[in-house]
Design a protein around this nucleic acid. Structure first.
Lengths: 106, 106
DNA sequence: TTGACATGCAAGCATGTGCTTGCATAACGT
DNA sequence: ACGTTATGCAAGCACATGCTTGCATGTCAA
């Protein structure tokens, strides 16, 4: 719990935090939390509807970053690339920086 | 809950996420979660002990970013600059991207 | 007051990052 | 087979970012 194993704690979380640093990627996670198995084109359409004017390639690269962080699982079905959300990398993130006084509500 | 108010949800959270994107800043939060009121020099010493070889100016700038995100409150006492942790901006962050199946343990 | 200590401020630099551009690949329908 | 649809790949560019450098400011002890 001391500061010596900070790097151990942070190890692996770096990719997750950096993946969450972009608003477009966060919006992609918002879209994926509603329904799994969405296509790249499907996500592009939703992004365009959310006021995010990113191109297909840009969104594809964002999804690659999310996949590298373990937040999105990619599976292929025919010519479609389907994306599933995986929130398990977020769990240690939620438990971090929790003060003793505001752990859980009584 | 639809995708239309995504920007509203994300509004204000952008600075927080970008502040958390840096490993040095996360380590600073780790140091501050243990004790409030730590000095810049004190934090520099702890960072050096954690294998982070950042200069004083670098750490000062990191603390500025954390303060701009609302994660750190800065107060002055004499010639010392004391830092307090504020975890309230993290609360909406923890509740985001929570699946219906893993809300809270039974 | 003087010197040491703790911090503030700003410009410059090297790297990282998001995005675009252009073309290649692969699967599906007809 | 052929064209369309959905996606993959890679180079290049504009900008953001973290860090350094150098000096200025302010506070405290003697």
């Amino acid at each position: 719990m001391c500061l010596h194993n900070v790097r151990v704690v942070d190890d692996g979380a770096d990719e997750v935090f950096r993946a969450l640093a972009d608003p477009t990627r966060r919006t992609l996670l918002d879209a994926l939390v509603e329904r799994d198995g969405q296509t790249l084109f499907e996500l592009c359409t939703r992004m365009a509807g959310s006021g995010i004017g990113s191109s297909r390639q840009a969104i594809s690269q964002h999804l690659d970053v999310l996949a590298a962080a373990g937040l999105v699982r990619v599976r292929h079905e025919g010519r479609y690339r389907l994306h599933d959300l995986d929130t398990t990398p977020l769990r240690p993130l939620r438990e971090r920086w929790v003060r003793h006084d505001d752990r859980t509500d009584p």
